[in-house]
Nucleic acid binder design. Structure first.
Lengths: 218, 218
DNA sequence: GGCCTTGTACCCTAATCAGGGGACAGCGCC
DNA sequence: GGCGCTGTCCCCTGATTAGGGTACAAGGCC
């Protein structure tokens, strides 16, 4: 799965950044690296679209989140659709959780905070995505992790570890029989757990249970 | 929110790693850093529990995922409950998506791949979490990002309006009979829709359907 | 005018689930 | 030494779901 971290040919980058000073800084540094070439360095999404008509498809796009005209965040879905093989690393000044979430949902491969990222770290970020990884600034990663954790809900303490285990497998779409097989239990036992879950979570059917799970934590 | 990146006192680490060589390597390097102290260096979760009784609570725990006895993954939820102020960085050889997902759900603040992480990078990872960030190896971050992206969902265009309507009510936890009542249809008709949904979404049971819906779009 | 997709409805059989019940061992609390 | 909770297993009955048909009217597409 991982692409070679040391491609033989320079990798084509696109840099989209409205602040001319930052843009030049990035160009100066990144484009003098032997690993990269920079056929596209522009100040807006609109210019990017134009350049993409003429130029080779870049392998990685460094995209500013907030731009005059169309923002990077708005352009991302379209970009992902038109250039499915291109990784997009978003860059911005702020680690706003909502934007991070939006970006990651839309398929960003990286999200870096400008003033927390040195030029060598920019380079490393690009190399990381080329190697099949993702590049998240630590503060961004932290925000992203929040989305994995179940909303502070009431159940977890009420449900025993085993019950939660069964619950999880049910949420994953397994039947009672499949859960039994997975946990090496008798189907009857699983049925007992399910009955207990219904009682504890105050539901009366599998549908309600899964609906609760979907809203409650998941 | 971020804690100072340069604490005045050495930060107490716990290292849990069963491979003696790796353990010593980490101890040698990390514990000679002026920023850290290592009151706890053990080879299993069981020993960790013992040490925690005696020692100061560590600020950061480096925890191996797979350990003899209780695994790091199993210990994580308990650890998070008993030491809510302590960050846990998991370390392992493999970037298995399931384990990553489990760990992040359980509240890990970092997840690093052993043989892709140099000692200075270990140090940086710890500093990152101390600064309120999260430390994910690039390959781990990539796996984690997959969970943000709506499952390659072809549904919206394939499902007719009526089918989506039925789908939505099922997701809300209604039975076929209830859906029928709600939409003023025959239960048989609803059943027909459900069968068509199964076909279109390539599933074979209500559970799978709801699981797909929960992850896919909803 | 055919062909396909929807929306609607029915029939059938087998599998699964819902919701009762009982049983017993282990563990912790008081 | 009980009492409660958990984990495991079993039985039963009735409701629901799974999956396979068939049917027909309406509408779109070629």
């Amino acid at each position: 799965m991982p692409v070679s971290a040391h491609p033989i040919f320079p990798v084509a980058l696109a840099i989209v950044e409205d602040d001319a000073r930052v843009r030049e800084l990035l160009r100066e540094y990144l484009c003098h690296q032997p690993e990269f070439s920079c056929p596209i360095v522009v100040g807006s999404v609109e210019e990017l679209w134009e350049e993409l008509e003429l130029s080779l498809v870049p392998r990685v796009i460094l995209l500013d989140v907030s731009l005059p005209g169309q923002t990077g965040l708005q352009a991302l879905p379209e970009l992902r659709k038109r250039l499915p093989g291109t990784d997009v690393i978003l860059q911005t000044m702020h680690d706003d959780p909502d934007r991070i979430y939006q970006a990651l949902r839309a398929g960003a491969t990286g999200y870096v905070i400008k003033n927390a990222t040195s030029l060598p770290q920019y380079k490393q970020a690009i190399l990381d995505v080329l190697a099949g990884g993702a590049a998240l600034s630590p503060s961004v990663a932290r925000k992203a992790l929040l989305h994995f954790q179940p909303a502070p809900s009431q159940q977890p303490e009420l449900l025993s570890a085993r019950e939660q285990e069964v619950m999880q497998l049910l949420v994953d779409g397994l039947s009672e029989k499949q859960v039994a097989a997975r946990l090496t239990l008798s189907p009857e036992t699983v049925h007992t757990y399910v009955k207990r879950l219904y009682g504890k979570l105050q539901v009366r059917s599998r549908g309600e249970l899964l609906a609760r799970a979907a809203k409650g934590d998941l």
